[in-house]
Design a protein around this nucleic acid. Structure first.
Lengths: 206, 206
DNA sequence: GCTACCAGATGACAAATGTCATAACCGATT
DNA sequence: AATCGGTTATGACATTTGTCATCTGGTAGC
């Protein structure tokens, strides 16, 4: 029997009520301790450096920085923390990017709350915790054809920003922005930038 | 046994993890008892008739039947249950419709979990529980400025369809479609059609 | 009747968007 | 050394989008 050491968890989720409820629930587990809670990606990054948790549980769609970017930065920084992605979206593209970003778990918010504690224990013991149905679907799905730049620009275009506007923000020429959008439209078989953004979103590439 | 009678609650929310976590959290309150849980509107309706709860806590966007429709039917059926709407969306249009449907509470998922128990007690004691910031916004909020045609066309434009495409579908000339879009863009203070669609969506006008 | 106000259309124009060819630079792979 | 993919840039061009003034036919109100 090992000494009773709690698993130290950082919880990053922008919806306050869900975050609070999950934290309270995890605290009921005697072998799990929620050491910090973050409402956005940047705060999560700061708190990880401060608390050095064993496990990070993070949503994908958050303000400031997505959970996927956060996971990616964590990997690059050589952090010990293992990441579990917790999201609404059963999009194969998200799962693939999550695994590329070094995530050890991928759990859907559609699953029972009890599975979260279970996944935390699995990942802490060195195993993976990926939704089996989703893993199968991800195998059949085609890969994300977009480069980082294309994705970054398509995101902004999908929000209704003009080419000139995006160019200024990213310190690019307007022509370059148009080139990237033209490429993305062609790759996705879309009719225009708005259509391309819509397609990319439904596939989990944005 | 204490003299106090528990408040009997029905919880309707389609996201399993949030539903489970909230139920667990409410069970910790000694004066609240979750007597049933529903994953969609129709199930909620069935369980309400079966358990006769004091309070119904319901999401808006659910399969089968929305929380607003559910609340409306409850009112018509002469049920004793009082309704608290629990939703992600701070859309004035939703709040207004919720109050029209006879809801006694309107709470955002962005608020701390502790407020839910508090709201349940308030509503059970005959008071209302409406997010104050949202109530103010709803009062100040201007009405939907879009005509039916404008909304119809803006919907399609927001999905990435071209003016010519939309014109064909609606049996209009392309110029007319562009005129309507121009009007909508001006009314919403948007930069272009995509921006206009985004704005209209966030306001609940689309 | 007259009037006002729709929805829809037209034409003209400016601005934004999409396409394509071409070219330079860089780092990684072969 | 040669090649490839990703990034950035420019210029030219066609198409689409956004704006505005103006026109028509219908319908509802006085």
């Amino acid at each position: 029997m090992t000494a009773k050491q709690s698993i130290r968890v950082l919880l990053a989720e922008d919806q306050t009520m869900l975050r609070g409820a999950l934290a309270a629930l995890l605290e009921l587990e005697h072998d799990i301790e929620v050491v910090a809670q973050a409402a956005d990606g940047r705060e999560a990054q700061r708190l990880e450096r401060e608390h050095h948790p064993d496990i990070v549980v993070t949503d994908i769609e958050m303000p400031q920085m997505t959970g996927l970017e956060f996971a990616s930065h964590l990997k690059d920084s050589g952090s010990q923390a293992r990441v579990i992605i917790l999201t609404t979206f059963a999009r194969p593209g998200y799962l693939r990017r999550a695994l590329d970003a070094g995530a050890h778990g991928y759990l859907l918010k559609d699953r029972p709350a009890s599975e979260l504690a279970e996944a935390i224990r699995r990942v802490h013991s060195g195993l993976r915790a990926v939704d089996p149905a989703l893993a199968a679907e991800a195998w059949a799905a085609d890969a994300d054809p977009l480069s980082d730049r294309e994705r970054q620009i398509l995101q902004r275009a999908g929000d209704g920003r003009s080419s000139a506007d995006i160019a200024t923000e990213l310190h690019l020429s307007e022509g370059t922005v148009r080139n990237y959008l033209s490429e993305a439209i062609a790759k996705l078989g879309a009719a225009n930038r708005t259509d391309a953004a819509r397609i990319a979103r439904t596939r989990g590439w944005l």
